[in-house]
């Protein structure tokens, strides 16, 4: 299909979104990521039954934390799609890229630069 999606998105492979801990997402923000989104299988299609539901709850947990510390919860998102949906994957990447650009850079990244 050779679909295009924004080149600033770094993909981190995990065996299942159930492997994605809240801490992984927080660490990404701590290291300066402007946004993090978790892409899991369709709800009900998890090979491990509820990995994607767990990931969803962890993303929600991270969103609350990010809101509390004034980073912005909307910088973390969860999407569900099947592995055959290449165009949807590219569309989500564009959507997320646009959303994060509107929000601006991660304030942590700016604060780190300022502190350095």
């Amino acid at each position: 299909m050779r679909l295009q999606y924004p080149s600033n998105i770094q993909i981190i492979l995990v065996p299942c979104t159930g492997k994605v801990d809240a801490l992984y997402i927080l660490r990404a923000f701590e290291k300066g990521a402007d946004g993090v989104y978790v892409v899991g299988c369709m709800e009900g299609d998890c090979h491990f039954n509820n990995g994607n539901f767990r990931a969803h709850k962890r993303v929600e947990q991270v969103q609350k934390i990010l809101d509390t510390i004034n980073i912005g919860g909307e910088r973390a998102q969860m999407y569900n799609l099947s592995s055959s949906e290449g165009p949807r994957f590219a569309q989500i990447a564009v959507e997320m890229d646009e959303k994060i650009r509107k929000l601006g850079p991660n304030p942590i990244k700016l604060a780190k630069k300022k502190a350095a």
């Binding site: 809240a22 801490l23 927080l26 660490r27 923000f29 701590e30 934390i65 509390t68 510390i69 004034n70 980073i71 304030p107 942590i108 604060a111 780190k112 300022k114 502190a115």
Partner: peptide
């Protein structure tokens, strides 16, 4: 880990070392 990460980001964002 989660609390420490959140606090580090909070204080950094506040400009506090």
């Amino acid at each position: 880990g989660i609390l420490a990460s959140a606090l580090r980001m909070y204080f950094l964002n506040q400009g506090k070392e």
